[in-house]
Design a protein around this nucleic acid. Structure first.
Lengths: 215, 215
DNA sequence: CTTGCTTTAGAATGGATATTCTAATAATCA
DNA sequence: TGATTATTAGAATATCCATTCTAAAGCAAG
């Protein structure tokens, strides 16, 4: 199934022919129709797998409860961006939202549900952060969550136009600097933040990381 | 030409048939082929018109030199979002980047050039803002410009999934709070900013505004 | 070995649509 | 008016691809 997912991810729904899927998965074409019903259903299965995998990554990142939830979200965004830059392809969910989901109400409902789930998860994380005073009090958790979703969409689009991982990471850092509280703890000056904010290099080594793809 | 542009804008390239263009423009099909050469060329003309119009709006917004360039960028983003929410369609340039530009190198080059132009324009505005100490010194003008581009892409995608103008405006405000300098002028406290930042309501009246579409 | 079932590869079908062709109509102008 | 040219509407062509059909091959069990 990951083979099909990668195809759709790279090329999109329309540009991936059922023939490509047959080749990549080893499934016989006829068998594939008997198993799934049609191209759309194959895709929906791939999409489900994609979403579940992303969710698992996010939850595991949140699991480290000694870390700020804001940082967990940032980390997940970092993983996503790593993957996007490597593949030259944005979030599969966001991509299909612009092609198949436009015409197909079933797919659209599914995509909306997945996205709502994502926003809710982000929002909950930010709410928890707010309770721990780790979120800028000027920013509503809901708005922060929506911003993250917009970032995911936009960063993916940028990656598809050839943006580098570094550029994308830097954008994340800038955007997230709006989410940290003005004074991290007691009464520290803004210089202290300054050393945090523009550092887009921390997770910058390595080739792949535990990002989304691969298996 | 704006009729064709609106079609492509709303439905995308593939989902807009040449028949639709014929109907909407009144052009005879054969005449249209003689005039432009093909569907792709019709589209390129519409895209050029779209870009020039957006550029004009941006320049006129920047023109008010008594206003901060950061605010000018924010205002233009506001116009764009207004239009996106009204149409339920994101930036035409960003949209086509994901469909036609993938397969068509000529279109891709054009799209890249337009986008580069946009980023450069934003970057220049932010540089000017930095010189006037109206940009957060922790943020490089280039990064700010790239963030704005990512926001445009992401906000458009969000609008297509049904996000409201208000939601989108709020996201802009949050993101832009990362761009304002920590202390606006002399030595004011963060409470002063707090009254500025989450105000997504200033330009919130009205129905359409001088946004992109319409004519 | 033979009979019945499953799986397969490749051909056939059907629908969509960009593009070109054609015959008719309108427009231009001597 | 009459001849030439331009424009049009609709038919014809060509391509692409999801889906289905078909006939052959593989396989299981008696």
């Amino acid at each position: 199934m990951t083979a099909a997912r990668d195809l759709f991810w790279r090329a999109g729904y329309d540009e991936t022919s059922i023939e490509d899927v047959v080749e990549a998965t080893g499934f016989n074409r006829y068998a594939l129709y008997k198993e799934f019903g049609g191209k759309r259903e194959v895709f929906l299965a791939a999409l489900e797998a994609y979403h579940q995998e992303g969710k698992a990554i996010f939850l595991s990142s949140l699991g480290n409860s000694h870390r700020s939830p804001v940082d967990a979200v940032r980390e997940v965004l970092g993983f996503a961006v790593e993957e996007m830059a490597r593949r030259g392809a944005g979030c599969l969910l966001c991509n299909v939202a612009r092609e198949l989901a436009r015409r197909d109400p079933v797919v659209r409902a599914r995509v909306e549900a997945y996205m709502d789930e994502m926003v809710s998860a982000f929002q909950e994380a930010f709410s928890r952060a707010a309770a721990r005073e780790e979120l800028n009090p000027n920013v509503a958790p809901e708005s922060a969550a929506r911003l993250v979703m917009v970032l995911i969409k936009g960063l993916g689009a940028a990656a598809e136009m050839g943006a580098t991982r570094r550029e994308l990471m830097e954008i994340i850092e800038v955007a997230f600097s709006a989410l940290s509280p003005p004074q991290p703890s007691g009464r520290r000056r803004s210089r202290d933040r300054r050393e945090e904010a523009p550092c887009a290099h921390r997770r910058s080594r390595g080739t792949a990381g535990p990002g989304r793809g691969r298996n």
